[in-house]
Write a protein that binds this DNA or RNA. Sequence first.
DNA 1: ATTAAAAGTGGACAAAGTCAACTAAAGGAG
DNA 2: CTCCTTTAGTTGACTTTGTCCACTTTTAAT
Lengths: 144, 144
Amino acid sequence: MDKEIIYDIRQFNRFYTKVLGLFNNHILDTDYSLTEARILFEISEETECIANNLVQKLNMDKSYMSRILRKLEKEALIEKKSSARDNRKNFLFLTKKGEEQLAKINIQSDQQINQLFSGLSESEIHEIHTSMMVIKEKLNKYNF
Amino acid sequence: MDKEIIYDIRQFNRFYTKVLGLFNNHILDTDYSLTEARILFEISEETECIANNLVQKLNMDKSYMSRILRKLEKEALIEKKSSARDNRKNFLFLTKKGEEQLAKINIQSDQQINQLFSGLSESEIHEIHTSMMVIKEKLNKYNF
DNA sequence: ATTAAAAGTGGACAAAGTCAACTAAAGGAG
DNA sequence: CTCCTTTAGTTGACTTTGTCCACTTTTAAT
């Protein structure tokens, strides 16, 4: 693979690390950390979500996950209901409060995106969007 | 801005968070953390680099930076030379050892990129590359 | 000359993440 | 069925990472 392309990709990675970093710090302005927000999000997306799914998907330590879930349960954002078929598993659900909190986070996140893209024309936004889809499709296809 | 586009962008961000996360954990396999690697890299790129540049560029707390730099100095990866014109500033330089360490990290990072892109055709790599350049150009232009 | 801002340091602390040992349940292989 | 392995999750002890604030020193600004 061409040296210059690798250089550019690494530069992009540094650049996008900063983009994501800024987003994440904004999320931290709410009461919940990025990770907690991600967990709420994933629980809401997935039916029959269990802790281990999250561990895989978010690439986290299971003990750490266990603690975060306990915290979220304590704060009444989520509920655990143990599986009838497999007593090792707990299905995770958002409570009403959890859904509300996630909704807030979603609104904030959408605003952040809007802000980042303010000053860009429709066609520029479209170009970026297309580019993101290309990257995701291509990399997803073979490596995740 | 269109709801669906925002949705896609957030999805891309989640996706790329994972990509970067995998990279970063690999860097952690070496003796230095991602942040330390970034600092070595930035010092090597910038002439007359001072701590405060790094604080801005990497979006970090200055006391934290101070400590990391002290650690790197202690391990003889960097040197500080106080500016003649402004005694508050210390110019930062890589030592020979620092350069060697950075070279190792660079090799590893290049290998990671190669690995991520293995299985993709030339034209696919080219597409991804172009897409990255588009995103960086467009977002950089107005917002950083 | 006084005040304000910039650069950096240090203490105390909190948040985030890791590691290893453990329990309990489920899924085989024989 | 019994033994062994795997999966899901928890707990304790710990390290790393990151934050907050007060402080010093030096430079810039009015």
